[in-house]
Structures are given as structure tokens and as C-alpha cells.
Nucleic acid binder design. Structure first.
Lengths: 203, 203
RNA sequence: GGACACCCAGUCAG
DNA sequence: CTGACTGGGTGTCC
């Protein structure tokens, strides 16, 4: 009924990193993610009940995207994505906003998987709605907001639109899921950690 | 360079309790406070350097307020205040939050000193800012938070406002000081002790 | 008016 | 290390 000790965690982490799965080995990000899972399960934090999660078909890669911004307007900003195919990436800039971080996470995830069917997990309704709902309307109205003001972060929005149109034209499936932030969702938590780390490094 | 042994502490405590200062004698709370001071000084924990502390004018009573809550939301909750006039009080309730404890400490201290110029020491910025900054704004906006949600613990906040307005109308001076928690600040430590005791008794 | 996110600060505890 | 109670602020959209 209890979780792992710190010692057990680090030993597990080392073990996971040295494992071979087929020809590949686990990334550091995924090893940490797995340790967190084991810890949660052993600690009774997650019930073994069937989870009401979307069923992701075989061959589809799930990616969690997240951003971070210390001192929100204009502070050090980080972005990160973590995928179930074992890949992950992150980066930062010296000045940005929380929403720029979230946008960059998605854009970088898409750029890294141009030919892969994806299931995208975001915690930002701003980015999720931009990608799935608002961009078409903005384009029709010359990138103007509902209240007539220019859409923020237009350059990033245009790039996002470009990437999504390319996927659509190539017939590459893309599905979306909103996940609440900080909800012991292993993929998202790891993306959160990496994004925060990247923001701190960009300081 | 070393502090007191437990034996030394209890002997000191007994000694302090039997002392006469003018016609009064030390309360148990203040005796413990003094012993803690001696211990800290002998242990080299506090430097004998001149401290940058507010100078409290003669006739002004300093009061440290503190709250405690075991198992934070909804657990046994205690409050306490300790004053330099030798008085102190504490109490508890079966269910509360940490912040309710801190609020009750201040409210009870004010109620016990309606006509005394006070210097109030709090470790809770939540309560300190409520009392000195936020209440006026909340009243203007119908007790709504900056993010539009109803202010928590409104009943206690209203009572606090009432007490402070009464003091102001009567022209009774009130000054405020934030002290970091658990910083060998004798008055605060004693209030902390009493609040914890009260919480355990309320269990 | 609503929603999500990013922080900052303090406290209470395990 | 974990979690909760509370407040302030900004970024963004409808």
C-alpha cells in the first residue's frame, strides 16, 4: 500500500535506462515517467479500475505537450513534448509568455512527427481551441479576433495552421484530447517537468 | 556555543515561574518563551548583533498570533495569541483549515484587547494582507476575489473588518509586522506551540 | 461574464 | 519528497 523510497526510485530508474526493448532503449524521460507510474501504483494512488480514457488505435503515437513561463509576461519560457514512441524534446527562450510556450510545444511536436498519426494531449484550451476551432475563422476575417483586435502570436498561429493543413492534405490522422494540468497524468507531468527545466535553463 | 539541556530548561522554567516582577508573576506562556530565548542565545542561534526590529513604543502591547491545523482541509484546528502584557489565550475547533486558525488567532487577540494600542505579529501573509490591504477592495467588489470568485472565510473576514474599523474609529493605534514562521521568534514560537496544543485538544 | 493556462507569495501539515 | 488552504498578477480566447 506504500510507494517507493527515493533509493528504490533511483535504482529502478537506472534499471529502466539499461533495459532493451526490441532494438531501442528507454529515453530518460520515459524512464522517469515509468518510475512515477510504478510509484503511483504501489502507493495506491491510481486504482486498477478501467480508466475512461480514449482508446488510441495501434500505430498512433500519443504526445503530451506543455509550456512553462517563469514570471509570465516576458519571462524565461520553456516548451516540451513527450511521446509514447520514446521520443521527447524541449527548448526555451529568454523572453516569452505562457501561451507562447504552449504553442511552441505543439508546433515542435508536429514538426518532429510529420508522417505519423498522432493523438495530441494538451492542457491549454487556448492552444487546443486555436488548432481545432478558431484558426479557420481567424483566417476568414484576416487574423482578427472576435472583438476585432489582431490575433496574438500570429506568426506561431500561421505556422501551426501550415503544419495542420499539410497533415490534412497528406491524410495523416490527428486526434486531440484536453487533459487538465497537474492531474497525475504521466505523459503530461513529464512534459511539464521538461518544460519547466527548459525555462529555467533559458534564464 | 551550545544550548540548554532539557534538565536546565525545566529548572529555568521553574525559576522563572516563581519570580516576582513588581507585583505580577510570569505566566506559564511567557516563562516558556523566556526559556526558549535563553536556549536560542546560548545555542548561538541568535546573534547578539543589533536587530533590525521595529521599535515598539512604551505602552504598546505586542501580540503574536498563530494558527494550526492537523490534516489541513477539515481537520482539528487551533488558534493562539501571546502578548507582551503577560496575557495569552488559545482555542480550537474540530474542523477547520490552516487559514481559519490563523484568522481566529487575530480575531481573538483583537477582541481581548479592545482598548489597547497593539503591535501585531503574524506569520500568515494571507491574514496580514487581508487585514491591511485586501478587505477594502473586497468590500467594494462585493466580497469577490480578483479572479471573480467569492472570498473565502467571509464571515471571519467581516468580523475582522468590524473589529479593525472599531479600533480605527476609536483612534486606537494598530501596527503590523510579518514574521517568518519557525524563525526562533520567541513570541511567535510560543503562539505556535499553544495553537498546536489547542488543535490536538480539539481532536 | 466565462474558460483554460502560466507563475509569485505565505502558511498549514504528512 | 508529497498534499491542501489562500491571495495577488498576466497571457489569451469566446
Amino acid at each position: 500500500m506504500s510507494g517507493l523510497t527515493e533509493d528504490q526510485k533511483s535504482r529502478l530508474l537506472e534499471r529502466f535506462r539499461s533495459l532493451s526493448l526490441g532494438s531501442a532503449h528507454l529515453s530518460a524521460a520515459h524512464a522517469r515517467m515509468l518510475v512515477a507510474e510504478v510509484d503511483a501504483v504501489l502507493g495506491g494512488v491510481v486504482e486498477p479500475e478501467p480508466r475512461a480514457e480514449p482508446v488510441v488505435p495501434d500505430g498512433v503515437v500519443t504526445i503530451a505537450c506543455d509550456g512553462s513561463c517563469l514570471a509570465n509576461p516576458d519571462g524565461p519560457t520553456g516548451w516540451a513534448w513527450v511521446a509514447t514512441d520514446g521520443r521527447s524534446d524541449s527548448g526555451g527562450l529568454a523572453n516569452g509568455t505562457n501561451n507562447i510556450g504552449e504553442l511552441l510545444a505543439l508546433i515542435n511536436a508536429l514538426e518532429a512527427h510529420p508522417d505519423t498519426a498522432l493523438h495530441l494531449q494538451l492542457d491549454s484550451q487556448y492552444v487546443l481551441n486555436s488548432a481545432t476551432k478558431w484558426i479557420p475563422g481567424w483566417k476568414r476575417k484576416g487574423w482578427k479576433t472576435a472583438s476585432g483586435k489582431p490575433v496574438a502570436n500570429v506568426d506561431l498561429m500561421r505556422r501551426l495552421d501550415e503544419l495542420l493543413r499539410a497533415r490534412e492534405e497528406a491524410g495523416i490522422p490527428t486526434t486531440w484530447e484536453w487533459v487538465r494540468g497537474h492531474n497525475q497524468h504521466a505523459l503530461n507531468e513529464e512534459a511539464d517537468r521538461l518544460a519547466g527545466e527548459a525555462a529555467r535553463l533559458a534564464r
